[in-house]
Design a protein around this nucleic acid. Sequence first.
DNA 1: GCGTAGTCATAAATTTTATTAATATGAGAT
DNA 2: ATCTCATATTAATAAAATTTATGACTACGC
Lengths: 293, 293
Amino acid sequence: MNIKELQYFQRLFQENSFTKTANFFHVSQPTITAAVQRLEKELDAQLVIRDQSHKDLIFTDSGKQFEKHVEQILQEIETAKLEITAIKKEKVRLGLPPIIGGYYFPTLSSQLVSQDLLSQLDTHEDGSKLLLNKLITGHLDIALLGSVQPIENDQLSGHMLSRKKFKIIVSRNHPLAQKKAVAFKDLQREPFIQLNERFIHSIAFEQLSRQNRIKPEIIYRTNDIQVIKGMVANNIGISFLTEMAILPQDPVAALELSDVVQPEFMIQLVYRSNHVLTAVQQKIVNLMTQYAF
Amino acid sequence: MNIKELQYFQRLFQENSFTKTANFFHVSQPTITAAVQRLEKELDAQLVIRDQSHKDLIFTDSGKQFEKHVEQILQEIETAKLEITAIKKEKVRLGLPPIIGGYYFPTLSSQLVSQDLLSQLDTHEDGSKLLLNKLITGHLDIALLGSVQPIENDQLSGHMLSRKKFKIIVSRNHPLAQKKAVAFKDLQREPFIQLNERFIHSIAFEQLSRQNRIKPEIIYRTNDIQVIKGMVANNIGISFLTEMAILPQDPVAALELSDVVQPEFMIQLVYRSNHVLTAVQQKIVNLMTQYAF
DNA sequence: GCGTAGTCATAAATTTTATTAATATGAGAT
DNA sequence: ATCTCATATTAATAAAATTTATGACTACGC
């Protein structure tokens, strides 16, 4: 069994035609016939039913099942190649969602510089979902991910770096600005300016709404935190942000949530569980777990 | 790239010797050398550092990383072959833990017989952990699993078939035998006879103990439910069992737990998410989800 | 119905790839 | 220095994949 045969088979499954598959790979049609026959012989099972009144190829149960495995195998090879390319370049591909890239990661970077590690990093900003996908497919070595729950995935290993609270920000002129804390259910009538759905803030907000059985109105959504802070400062509405993203110099007041049960913003360092950390990667992981805050 | 090369490489990784690897596969030593060189060429990366004062082979970072992928790939092929063998035999390999095999499954079997499906089943009794492993490695097609939490695994798909309560059984002479329900925390001083650690009962028991901050004494553990019922009937202690395993004719009294939050015994039908259900398997899945109770 | 086009299988020839036997190289041990 | 052990190299050979040419079958248009 060789990889080329598997590629032929996969393509045959997609194309449903020996001839088209052969053209795709710029080989002759009997090449495909022979490759599939070899697979059938090795697996001792018929994979495709040819002819069958000649309209269409039909894949047997074995063939359908085998194709799933082939997909996995080819994916695994793809991942391997990507990882090896990255190792050769001696670059560590680190994924970051924008909030972590903007607020958490900079605090780590002086440490990274002092150990001369920052220059080896190739950072990729993206949404959490896409980052997870890139990790699994070998497009990233490590990612810092924000989430509301610890990441549970058999294919991934994670270290919890930090747990941050979510806070409410209001204009300094807002009646709530004098308070230190507020219960989420008391925000029922407040107009919210929110980060959009790609941020886990919306999951945490959803969770708080559900458990308090209220549905505060969201009057505006954006993916730009500066815009949110500006609108809140001008008292157009209030917002819900992880404390990490709220800086002392921001022209807004931040209140804690007094809810006993409340979601947390978790920052985790994640990599494929069968990823082998290189020496540099290990240094980065050590530094991050050590200097986590 | 072909599978044989990957096998050679994997073995080389384990043996740390070209010569031994060659002997293992009954091929000449240059065969291994050439195969590894082909891999290195295709991946455009050095995988092994040879010689190096001749003591030992050293695998590069790329080599170590690649080996992990090779393991996955060979595992996937193994799984594929096992699945295809099962498809050819037209047998559906169903895994069951003993409790489900003894108490839940029999209630389904008349349905299975009426659709002439029972004869196509190959049932395998085993512990839940092992069953999961067998599913993933392709040794089983479908499993009925008992658990305290819904199974969350990217590689598996599941259908919830049934949720059962856990109950307390006591001797008919026991003071509690007159009651209908009891709070777990009131069982602090009772001696328990328990199923052993391989059963999820121990997880549920642990959970109840933790949330009630008590630690009832377990005076005996066994994996035989009949033994437990016998000992309870003779008032040697009380026990904690899923209601599913308690039959009307059992010479014991069963009490509900009055705890508001309490674990449930969940029965789920599980299969690999990239498993292709054959027509027969689909019938079985339909029947089970339909006649679940 | 008959010819034509499209699809896949088969067979023999050819090319490519994997394996072997023989030998070289290099390092540590004696 | 020479022997031993482990891997690399080379040329010859065996094995496997691919191609070209062709055949068998079917669907479709006329």
